[in-house]
C-alpha cells in the first residue's frame, strides 16, 4: 500500500459547511480583535507617550504585562477567572473575543507608538500653531500619518493574530481548527482534516500578505 493510499480526502467535501461555520468565527474573532486592538492600542500608545506620569506608567505596565505572558495562558486564565469573579459562566466565544482584543491591544499599541514617534515633532507644532487642541492635532495630523506609516506592520500583526486565533481551541470555542478537530473525529479522519485546514490557513495568510504589499505601494505619502 502506497503512502498516499492511506488517506481519504473525500471526507472533506461533506464537512465543508461545518468547517465554514468555524472559519466564520475565526474571521469574526480576527476582525473584532484587530479593530478593537488597534483602537485600544492607539489609546494605550497615546497614554504611554503622554506627559501625565501615572497614565504613562499604567499603560506601560499593562503593555509589558501582556507581552510577557503567553497568549494561551491569558486565554485560559480569563476563561477560568471571569466565572469566579462574576458568578456566571461566560461563553467561550465571548471570552475569546475579549481576551484577544485586550491582548492584541498591547501589541498594536507598540506599533502605534512607533508610528506616532515616526511623525516629526514639527508636525505637532504645525497643528498646534493653527490652534488645534491636543486631540485635534492627534486625530487630524499625527494619527493619520502614523497609520499610513505603520499600515504594513499593522497588517502583518493582523496576519499573526489570525494564526493565533487557533489557540482558542483550548477553551473549546468553535473556530476553524476546532471545527476541523470535531469533523476529523466524526469521520475518523483527523489527519486529512488538519491537512486541509492548514492549507486554508496558508492560503488566507498568503493572500493577506500580498494585500500588505499592495497597500504598501498605494498608501505611501508623497514626500
Amino acid at each position: 500500500m502506497s503512502f498516499f493510499a492511506q488517506f481519504d480526502f473525500s471526507v472533506i467535501a461533506p464537512s465543508l459547511p461545518f468547517l465554514w461555520e468555524g472559519l466564520k468565527f475565526t474571521a469574526k474573532l480576527t476582525l473584532i480583535a484587530m479593530a478593537g486592538g488597534i483602537f485600544l492600542g492607539t489609546l494605550l500608545a497615546l497614554a504611554r507617550l503622554s506627559s501625565i506620569a501615572p497614565l504613562a506608567m499604567a499603560a506601560t505596565w499593562y503593555v509589558n504585562l501582556m507581552r510577557s505572558i503567553p497568549l494561551l495562558m491569558v486565554i485560559l486564565w480569563f476563561f477560568l477567572i471571569i466565572p469566579l469573579l462574576t458568578g456566571k459562566p461566560m461563553g467561550a466565544e465571548t471570552s475569546a473575543i475579549i481576551t484577544f482584543t485586550a491582548f492584541e491591544a498591547a501589541y498594536f499599541s507598540e506599533i502605534m507608538r512607533a508610528g506616532i514617534q515616526s511623525v516629526p515633532r514639527g508636525q505637532v507644532f504645525a497643528g498646534q500653531a493653527i490652534g488645534m487642541t491636543y486631540w485635534q492635532t492627534m486625530s487630524y495630523v499625527v494619527l493619520p500619518q502614523a497609520f499610513r506609516n505603520m499600515l504594513p506592520v499593522l497588517l502583518t500583526q493582523t496576519i499573526i493574530l489570525f494564526q493565533d486565533t487557533s489557540l482558542v481551541y483550548a477553551i473549546g470555542a468553535k473556530d476553524l481548527l476546532k471545527a476541523a478537530e470535531i469533523a476529523g473525529k466524526n469521520y475518523g479522519r483527523p489527519i486529512e482534516m488538519y491537512v486541509f485546514v492548514a492549507l486554508v490557513y496558508f492560503l488566507i495568510c498568503f493572500a493577506l500578505s500580498r494585500l500588505v504589499k499592495h497597500f504598501q505601494a498605494r498608501t505611501a505619502i508623497i514626500r
Binding site: 516629526p120 500653531a129 490652534g131 487630524y140 500619518q145 499610513r148
Partner: peptide
Amino acid sequence: PQLRAHVGMVFQHFELFPH
C-alpha cells in the same frame, strides 16, 4: 489653542500636512 488660532506661524521646514 484659542490664542494660537490667531497667531500665525511659519516654520523653517514648512511643516505642511503631507497627507
